[in-house]
Design a protein around this nucleic acid. Sequence first.
DNA 1: ATGCGTATTGCGAATCGTTCGCAATTAACC
DNA 2: GGTTAATTGCGAACGATTCGCAATACGCAT
Lengths: 142, 142
Amino acid sequence: MKESIDLKSQLRQHGHKLTTQRAEVWEVLKGAPGHLTAEQVAADTASGVNLASVYRALGLFTDIGIARESRLGNDDAARWEVAHPDDEFHIVCRSCGRVEHHGGDLVQQIRTHLSNSHGFEAATVELAVSGECSRCSDPSAA
Amino acid sequence: MKESIDLKSQLRQHGHKLTTQRAEVWEVLKGAPGHLTAEQVAADTASGVNLASVYRALGLFTDIGIARESRLGNDDAARWEVAHPDDEFHIVCRSCGRVEHHGGDLVQQIRTHLSNSHGFEAATVELAVSGECSRCSDPSAA
DNA sequence: ATGCGTATTGCGAATCGTTCGCAATTAACC
DNA sequence: GGTTAATTGCGAACGATTCGCAATACGCAT
């Protein structure tokens, strides 16, 4: 079977080593439900990878394109997640605090619109929406 | 003639005083081309308002809804601007570094899409796009 | 398997943006 | 003009992130 992303080869491709710490950080990131702060990642690593090293690993993953960093709404700590193949965006429910990912073509539509109407070629599209998720605005949907 | 926003009455409405510092911060914000960091605002005030006070003023303006805070892409400092009546979004050119505002119905489309397809009622929509603006991707447009 | 050379780690100190505590000041109302 | 509570300015405190550097571990060749 094929793992979504082969960390070792990705690192090698960019001239970096596969270390146990990087592997652990990657595992945590892959296994996490949503976005994690560096601190959360550090706490979840099997051997308690040093926070500074976690930052370095996450920064590296982001640089080589296998992770994505984002700074949601009001929060002041950055969060990371595995880079999904396609654009996606976050919606933050301000009632329950949940952060959900949304894929779909919305971001693609945004790109198209910007390109057509404004001649702007979007490299990254970061969309953070806060509001009431269906679960919170309509309790019957719970 | 009618000023876009009457600072004094806005403050009063929410039980706050109009101080010279707040007025200066407001002037800077209104007169600024784009988003400013707190530090930039402080530097631009006529009498050199203290940075902490600038933060307090900006926070207050944001709370009462007459300013808007945002944290663009890679930058790690928050920026503020006068709250425009409608949703808008920022596009950051990674070549020239310019930050442009865009109004239009794009954000409204996003709201509609989220509401219709996901039952999510968006309160705030923050969209930050980075890429190449037309000026940079096509030098002839300069 | 072993050793080498370099990338990487861990630690603590440094940095940056932002907030806090508190004494001195000042706006709003009489 | 006087009273009083809100606000300012300052410097210290804070949390997130980065940096410097000695110790360590990976990848490669042997």
